[in-house]
Design a protein around this nucleic acid. Structure first.
Length: 702
DNA sequence: GAGCACTGC
């Protein structure tokens, strides 16, 4: 391995630089909080918090940030990890009076936990009660006060929902989009909408906060100055250095045939030659993680008795909660923690104690294929930005080391950034949201990174087939409008609206809620057989949807018992979440004037209701024993997680989605009757020949 | 005959 020094400059040593400008003394305790009965920190605590705040790198830029925000309508702030931007900038704005006259400073986060933790920290620093002057709002958890809250942290998805009620975001004076470099679907939609809002609201200020990369792209996007005079610019960039320990990056000299083997070897080499400090290795999927974990456990067993011990742990999304928690525990002095993880550890969670990082150089992503209308899970090389982010995980507690299992040449050939989600997603839901927000011509919407036109067309076609938009591509009233209100994919929204016709709305909301949670049935690798047996208790011949309905009802019957879930290998947290989602959906049903009624076990009613939403996802059993989509004759297979997987195949099925892994699989499958397809979606299946369909499509005015 | 990157409303 060759040592490289150039990347050292990318991370910064902590500095002792004090503040360069003296600021006026400020009261940290809110007037609004002063008369509350709860604990208010004494003077000393306030001082020490104040001192801590002044030591953050971003503090030096306080006046500069405030100046830029006066002068420019949009400020792009490049803030490296640990600079304090997320917690400090909203407070600078508050202190400078941006929340005067009842206005609110809004800060978005891509993830729920981030919104809560940052809000909690800011409330602490301000000696405020969380939910009063400082609050957060995420789905199912609104911790704000309509009158009092001045600094509000939200998930970007929730801000989008707020925009449906108040398109101009009138209560906000500033919106800060944090972690914009992640380029999540919602961040990108909100970016586009804010650009539009800014045209109508001169006073609205936007801060785009990003960790390196794309600063100029963001700035240009918001720049409205068309003259050559830079004095007229409306957007500016500011860079704030981070506070990380240096991370030395090592590359391998020649490509390795197997990064799994190389991961095991590198872990062992670090363990034998490097001083204390935990190891984090990035792989692409659960399978790889489990393989490497078991190989390392073998190695750990062979260590001499007096040697430093190895504590090897897997970490991936579908790992049951209790096992996930283990990676956050600290280990004793005689032990080194070794975490083998998927991309979950890149940004979503932070594992404490990591000093060494191993990066295989690949990531598994979900890419939408507009031709087949399905999603594919594909392993692709990481971007340079991702590799940088992974390496940075080693520099949080002291200087660290990152081992890249690829050559430096290969690193230089990597793309600078990842493809934004917007360009690799199914657009149906996005289009529906945008239309509901009054954006008629979605093809001309100003996307920061426009999705492929074909993705948009495909999305529009589906909305048309569902009846959410008409021939002129306008949202239908009331169906399209109502559908947009549901926090669900358009197919599920349609299914709920259609449940009125089949008298099974009770069942439909349960199914929709259950389908939103992942890994309802858990299969721990050491107890697979019993887990599959347990699943069979709930399974029905009709398929996965009604199986989920049964599971949910059984959960209620057993009093929402966590113990019962454990005994039956069910995801307790997931089921509790399903209850909440269901509650929210019921409220929206009431708004849509669909009464909640039960069909009392009439399976056909439920199946027909499913067809009303998912008719486009229908497949027929071929003579050769495989399924093919009815519309496009696309070969499909039943996913191994489906209850229909081991059953004798039925003639016609509908499904929620297709995932391409080793084959094209249908996930969440239910048996249907062919006649229902023609009965419930004649417009979709009675078009006639392919040519007639093409002619009809061409007539639709996008 | 055998599989599950990660978020979010």
């Amino acid at each position: 391995m060759s040592r490289r020094d150039h990347s050292r400059q990318k991370f910064w040593k902590p500095t002792d630089d004090g503040p360069k400008t003296k600021i006026e003394e400020e009261r940290l305790v809110d007037v609004t909080e002063a008369d509350s009965t709860s604990f208010v920190p004494g003077n000393q605590t306030s001082l020490s918090i104040e001192k801590q705040r002044q030591q953050l790198p971003v503090f030096k830029y306080r006046t500069h940030i405030l100046y830029l925000l006066e002068k420019y309508r949009t400020v792009v702030i490049i803030g490296e990890t640990g600079c304090g931007k997320s917690t400090q900038i909203p407070q600078y704005l508050y202190e400078a009076g941006w929340a005067a006259n009842g206005k609110v400073i809004g800060v978005t986060q891509p993830r729920r936990v981030a919104a809560i933790t940052v809000a909690t920290r800011v409330a602490e620093e301000r000696a405020a009660i969380l939910g009063h002057s400082v609050g957060y709002a995420i789905r199912f958890d609104d911790c704000t006060d309509a009158e009092r809250t001045r600094i509000k942290f939200v998930t970007d998805g929730l801000l989008l929902r707020e925009m449906m009620k108040d398109p101009l975001l009138t209560q906000y004076s500033v919106i800060m989009l944090d972690e914009a470099h992640e380029r999540t679907l919602y961040t990108d939609i909100v970016l586009g909408l804010l650009k539009k809002v800014q045209r109508k609201r001169e006073d609205l200020r936007i801060i785009v906060a990003s960790a390196t990369l794309d600063a100029e792209k963001f700035r240009k996007y918001f720049e409205t100055n068309t003259s050559s005079d830079p004095e007229e610019d409306t957007a500016a960039i500011l860079t704030v250095e981070g506070r990380m320990f240096p991370v030395d990056v090592f590359y391998i000299k020649a490509p390795v045939p197997s990064y799994l083997k190389a991961t095991v070897e590198t872990v062992m080499k670090i363990h034998h030659t490097e001083r204390y400090g935990d190891i984090l290795a990035f792989l692409t999927g659960q399978d790889e993680v489990e393989q490497v974990v078991s190989l390392l456990i073998e190695h750990a067993r062979q260590l001499p008795k007096d040697a430093l011990k190895m504590f090897v742990l897997p970490m991936y999304g579908s790992l049951p909660g209790r096992e996930q928690m283990k990676v956050f525990e600290r280990v004793g002095k005689g032990t080194r923690k070794i975490v083998i993880a998927t991309n979950i550890a890149e940004a979503s969670i932070t594992i404490p104690g990591i000093v060494y990082v191993i990066d295989c150089g690949f990531v598994k992503i979900n890419a939408y294929n507009p031709k087949g209308g399905f999603e594919s899970l594909v392993v692709v090389p990481v971007s340079q930005a991702s590799a940088q982010q992974r390496a940075g995980r080693a520099g949080r507690i002291r200087s660290g080391k990152a081992y890249r299992l690829y050559t430096e040449d290969d690193f230089l050939k990597l793309k600078p950034g990842s493809v934004p989600e917007m360009q690799r997603s199914n657009m149906a839901a996005v289009v529906l949201q945008l239309k509901a927000l009054g954006i008629d011509n979605v093809l001309r919407f100003s996307f920061l990174s426009p999705p492929p036109a074909q993705n948009m067309v495909r999305g529009l076609e589906l909305l048309y087939a569902l009846g959410a938009v008409n021939e002129t591509c306008h949202l239908t009233v009331p169906l399209g409008i109502r559908m947009a209100e549901f926090p669900l994919s358009p197919m599920f929204a349609k299914m709920l609206m259609a449940s009125k016709d089949f008298g099974c709305s009770e069942e439909a909301v349960t199914i929709a809620a259950m389908m939103q949670i992942q890994n309802v049935f858990q299969t721990p690798s050491h107890n697979k057989i019993n887990a599959l047996k347990a699943k069979r208790l709930f399974s029905v011949a009709e398929g996965d949807h009604i199986t989920m309905l049964n599971t949910f009802n059984a959960f209620l019957k057993w009093g929402k018992s966590a113990r019962w879930c454990g005994q039956n290998f069910l995801n307790y947290k997931g089921l509790m979440r399903a209850i909440e989602i269901r509650k929210q959906l019921c409220a929206l049903m009431k708004r849509a004037k669909v009464r909640l009624v039960s069909c009392n076990g009439d399976m056909v009613a439920i199946q027909k209701c499913l067809v009303s939403g998912f008719f486009a996802n229908a497949a027929r059993l071929n003579f050769s024993g495989v399924y093919r989509t009815i519309r496009d004759d696309y070969e499909l297979h039943i996913h191994p997680t489906s209850v229909l997987y081991a059953e004798k195949p039925k003639q016609f099925v509908i499904f929620n989605e297709i995932v391409h892994t080793t084959k094209e699989f249908m996930r969440d499958v239910t048996v249907v009757d062919q006649r229902w397809l023609y009965e419930l979606a004649p417009h979709y299946y009675d078009f006639g020949t392919e040519n007639e369909i093409a002619a009809k499509r061409a007539k639709i005015d996008y």
